[in-house]
């Protein structure tokens, strides 16, 4: 049966269920226990935002605080994965990936291929992504395109708690390294989530809104902004389809192409910077594979090519808004009218 559960607690529940099911699942990260070895409570924090709270009490030594040493513990998680464990390592903010990128893209991502298919690296690296937290330039980035670029990595970016639980369980059971991106501004968002365990296969986009006139392809927080834009446009008589990619690698190209072939218009919405982004990837793929279906030039809505600003006034305009998205949709339609 189902009940309302937050995005954050869906992460916690998926970890708990999989640790209970499989003794090789271990967790590590900075302050995921949050108090280890200190005079007060052992699990004072349960993660910097409390995502892993309670798991230490339940699973003990399988939940490990690490030194502030991303290179060592992310590498250790990968090494343990290559030796039969299923570690879930928390890289607190994806911005910290610079400190351990070698372990992720030169080691974990390449073992299977480079070792002739004879190595498995079932590691999950969880990281918070996204702006809007007043966390400034080094704690707010949307680095999904960087990890999506790397063959051998799977990249997951859920937009709601139902998908979080099913995709995180799949990530843990998957035999490839997975970068599991959690949008910190969605942690409080709640939807119905079954109590039971379930796994959502990778590479299957969701369509939270069907429509006839234009296709928005997006993921993460932008799914919600896009749905807001679609509601607004519906009141003006424009019927927009919204595709939530859910996983960026693998990518559900079939669903994107089928939708654009139906609507003839594409708006790719991405919270990442515009250059070499998920938005540009989608736009290029559609232009290459569904050019004849397009009734107007595809539009990209992205963050600007600038670091994430601190000042709230600036950060709020840095993140694409529903209004901007709606404007981009209209642009695809006005173009058509001009052309006609």
């Amino acid at each position: 049966m189902a009940r309302k559960l937050s995005y954050k607690m869906a992460v916690n529940e998926a970890l708990d269920l999989e640790m209970t099911r499989d003794p090789t699942v271990i967790l590590m990260g900075e302050d995921i226990v949050g108090g280890a070895g200190s005079p007060g409570e052992d699990d004072a924090w349960g993660g910097v935002l409390g995502v892993t709270k309670g798991l230490f009490a339940k699973h003990g030594a399988r939940v490990m605080d690490t030194p502030l040493s991303e290179s060592a513990y992310i590498g250790a998680a990968i090494g343990a994965a290559a030796c039969g464990m299923r570690p879930v390592a928390e890289l607190m903010f994806i911005d910290f990936i610079g400190c351990c990128f070698d372990e992720i893209f030169n080691q974990a991502a390449k073992f299977r291929y480079m070792f002739g298919g004879k190595a498995e690296t079932p590691v999950v690296i969880r990281a918070m992504i996204g702006a809007g937290y007043r966390a400034a330039a080094q704690h707010s980035q949307m680095l999904t395109p960087i990890v999506t670029h790397i063959p051998g990595l799977k990249v997951v970016c859920p937009s709601n708690a139902y998908d979080v639980k099913g995709l995180l369980i799949q990530s843990i059971r998957d035999n490839d390294p997975v970068i599991f991106c959690e949008h910190k501004n969605l942690y409080a968002h709640e939807v119905d989530v079954p109590l039971e365990s379930y796994a959502i296969p990778f590479g299957e986009a969701a369509i939270p809104r069907e429509g006839r006139d234009a296709t928005i392809v997006t993921y993460g927080l932008m799914v919600h902004r896009s749905l807001e834009a679609a509601e607004k446009l519906a009141r003006e008589g424009v019927d927009v389809e919204v595709i939530d990619l859910r996983t960026l690698s693998p990518m559900d190209w079939d669903t994107v192409i089928e939708s654009v072939e139906k609507t003839g218009r594409l708006i790719a919405v991405d919270e990442a910077h515009p250059r070499c982004s998920i938005a540009s990837d989608i736009t290029a793929f559609v232009a290459q594979h569904a050019f004849r279906a397009l009734k107007s030039a595809p539009q990209m809505v992205t963050a600007p090519h600038s670091p994430v600003p601190f000042s709230p006034t600036l950060e709020d305009i840095y993140i694409p808004s529903a209004e901007t998205i709606a404007g981009a949709v209209k642009k695809t339609i006005i173009q058509k009218m001009v052309a006609a």
Partner: peptide, 8 residues
């Protein structure tokens, strides 16, 4: 699918 994907 939500039903079918539940463990068991």
């Amino acid at each position: 699918l939500k039903y079918k994907r539940l463990d068991g």
